[in-house]
Design a protein around this nucleic acid. Structure first.
Lengths: 344, 344
DNA sequence: GATCAAGGTGTAAGCGCTTACATCGACAGG
DNA sequence: CCTGTCGATGTAAGCGCTTACACCTTGATC
């Protein structure tokens, strides 16, 4: 009836029918042999495996997916991969997902116009989806939470119907602010991109603001990049009321600020202190080395993958919210440290 | 006969059957409406679209893939995503693939033991595959070239059956070496990871060696990271026969070398010059700023995606090999530049 | 008014795989 | 020797979608 045998050298690949024919068994037996489900007699198994080898057979993913009703893939949506932050999270995500037998499909929203369609399309080809805060419109998030695959929001405000996972911001931001006060700094600027309510940078701002009150003023940047940090800092530091310290939304902006200070002939931290956030690789190599807050970027990704796995396999609550610890990393950029500590 | 209507609220999602039933048409009409293939009368189209909206229908990817015989996805295999290099290439790859309507499935080989199976699995779920040099065993590459989807090797020696795409190495490496000679440096070390024949670092070594001859000696590192560069440089610079200049395999190793020099109380470039390769973000912010060779990382990824698209759609030769231009970026780390240039 | 072309839809055959269910022997227990 | 079991295998019904092909209207053409 069919003409299965015709596809001998098709580019699409060998099918289970050809294997079955070659081994002289039914496709069911081939499937059972390969997946280890159901009993298969020794000699039969041999025949099948030989045929599989000779034909270099690998099951078609689309076929398996359709039959199994799952994709064995996870998606992740991030704004971009330019800086180390998202890359690190992605590393953690991919590593765990891979261990759990799931491929990772990525989607960068940077510069995309058709985000909605791209995200919907992605949601349709994965068993679970991780989404960074503010990369996807709120209503789409709701739509996904309601009718999409299991969803984990990374660094996003808590939201009904989805799990969230983020690093601590408010407390360490406050700690950072107090540390700067200990150094004797009295006027501050918070250098960050236009933030959305509840996102990481907003929370950092809240934490800083809570301690410093009116002594800190917000200065917006366009993006979280070295260049926009540089540009904004140039304006800030050349203008009137130069602050004692610039608290940056993240390390890249901080690196830009250090660069700007240098160009203006200002010493860091002598004339102006600078702090970052994330503790990316470059923070350690900057001169002066950057005081910053380390957050467990990889674990953010790994945790998201694990949470999704639990969600997919039915274990795990659908509305869990987890917050990871961070650590204040004090280096040179916030001011000289007298031996014995500041608060002595 | 079937019980399609039973799946009304299935987690897997709405199927085309439900849409068809609701709209009072056949599934063929629904499909035609959605894909725009074949004629559909105005009112019918309306009914279908309304049903689609009300049911929030999106076609199942597995079903579409199986029927279409394609995945609408590209794969990419890289060693890791820790440094900026692979991330940048990935950005370019994803951007172009996405524009061409293909999702990107990633696979990092870092720390993986079952690479072969993971790669084979990946190959089965994509229409095209990009692979970085040396991430996959040679025989597996051959196997993929022979019986897998279209393949593009990035930064890999030319190989029958697959396209390759890489940046120029030998010429700019020679240029870099000559530039260092112009500075008056006379003894050199090439600081790089254990390289494989024909890979980027090997080619850079060849280029440098071609100009400097025995004046340059190779020093191996374990990886292409700041830390291994740091460790190797520490050994090298503290030992006897300290070279005038350290030519590093890439920027990250170079950053580590600068760090090591600093720790040893050596001035860069006063006591020892250092150069990198790639021109990553941190190269510009290092002190001294790093002299390096810029290669078009994003274009490497973008080109791979375009090549694959051509291969998949039947256009494009199967054995094309492309080499992208690079640019020597001279900054402070290779020595002071007298106004007016060196060769005056 | 019969003939055609073309538009508009439905039918059904796959795409490659998994798996519930049926079948068939062979062997042990009564 | 008959029946009950269980192991080993085959049969066939999907999984959700695309699309070639068949069928039925219409309206135009002569």
């Amino acid at each position: 009836m069919d003409e299965r045998e015709a596809a001998a050298e098709a580019p699409g690949g060998v099918t289970i029918y050809e294997v079955a024919q070659r081994a002289g068994v039914s496709i069911a037996t081939v499937s059972r042999t390969l997946r280890g489900t159901g009993p298969v007699a020794g000699p039969t198994r041999e025949k099948v495996l030989r045929a599989v080898q000779e034909l270099r057979f690998t099951p078609s993913r689309a076929g398996v997916s359709l039959a199994e009703g799952r994709h064995a893939a996870n998606g992740i949506v991030f704004p971009n991969l330019s800086g180390p932050y998202f890359a690190e999270v992605l590393i953690g995500y991919e590593e765990v997902a891979s261990e759990l037998g799931r491929s990772v499909i990525i989607l960068s929203t940077k510069g995309r116009t058709a985000i909605r369609d791209l995200v919907r399309e992605l949601a349709r080809r994965v068993d679970g989806l991780a989404v960074f805060g503010s990369t996807v419109p709120a209503d789409l998030v709701d739509e996904l939470a309601a009718s999409g695959p299991p969803l984990v929001l990374i660094s996003h405000a808590e939201r009904a119907g989805a799990c969230t996972l983020r690093s601590e911001n408010i407390r360490p931001a406050a700690e950072l602010a107090r540390h700067l006060l200990d150094h004797g700094h009295r006027s501050f600027a918070f250098l960050g991109a236009p933030y959305a309510t509840g996102d990481d940078v907003d929370q950092r701002w809240q934490g800083v603001r809570g301690v410093l009150g009116d002594a800190v003023r917000p200065v917006l940047t366009d993006e979280y990049t070295v260049d926009s940090g540089h540009a904004a800092a140039l304006r800030l530091l050349a203008g009137p009321d130069r602050p004692d310290a610039v608290i940056c939304s993240d390390d890249e902006v901080a690196l830009g600020a250090i660069l700007a200070a240098e160009e203006l002939g200002l010493a860091v931290p002598g004339d102006v202190a600078v702090t970052g956030w994330d503790d990316i690789m470059a923070a350690r190599h900057a001169r002066p080395a950057l005081t910053t807050v380390r957050q467990p970027m990889r674990e953010l990704g790994a945790g998201a993958a694990r949470t999704l796995d639990a969600l997919i396999s039915g274990t795990g609550a659908a509305g869990a919210h987890r917050v990871l610890d961070t650590e204040l990393i004090v280096r040179g950029s916030c001011g000289p440290h007298p031996p014995g500590g500041l608060r002595k």
